[in-house]
C-alpha cells in the first residue's frame, strides 16, 4: 500500500494538471481498507489513468481529522474535483457505483 503525500503547492499544481482529485480515508490495514485501496486503484488505472491524484489517509494515524472531515462510515472516498464534491463509502467493489460517483460514463 503506497501512501502519497502532497503539499499545498503540489495540490494547486495537480488541480490544474489533473482532473480528478481523490482522497481515500482508510483505517489501517483492515480488510475493507485494503480492498478499497486495491479496488480504487484498479478503477483509476483503468478509466482515468494519469488523470487523477489520489491521497490515501490512515485515520488511525490522524484521529483528530475524523471530526473535521465528518467521518462516519469508512472507507470513505471524497472526490473534491471536478465539482460537485462527492462522497462514497465502502470497499469500492461495486465498480459501477464508483464510476457513477466519479461522474465517469463508460
Amino acid at each position: 500500500m503506497s501512501q502519497k503525500k502532497i503539499s499545498e503547492d503540489d495540490w494547486n499544481l495537480d488541480n490544474e494538471k489533473r482532473q480528478y482529485v481523490l482522497r481515500l480515508f482508510v483505517t489501517g490495514a483492515s480488510l475493507n481498507s485494503r480492498r478499497a485501496v486495491v479496488n480504487l486503484k484498479d478503477i483509476c488505472e483503468k478509466y482515468i489513468k494519469d488523470d487523477y491524484s489520489l491521497e490515501i489517509i490512515d485515520v488511525y494515524q490522524q484521529k483528530h481529522i475524523a471530526e473535521r472531515e465528518q467521518l462516519l462510515a469508512l472507507p470513505l472516498l471524497i472526490k473534491s474535483h471536478p465539482l460537485p464534491e462527492k462522497r462514497m463509502i465502502g470497499d469500492m467493489s461495486d465498480t459501477e457505483k464508483v464510476l457513477k460517483g466519479l461522474g465517469i460514463s463508460i
Partner: peptide, 21 residues
C-alpha cells in the same frame, strides 16, 4: 443520498471520533 455506497463498510469513523473525544 449524499453518500454513495460502493460495497462493504464499517463505522470506524464514528468509533475513532468517539474514542478521540
Amino acid at each position: 443520498g449524499e453518500i454513495e455506497e460502493t460495497g462493504e463498510y464499517d463505522l470506524d469513523g464514528l468509533f475513532i471520533r468517539l474514542g478521540y473525544a
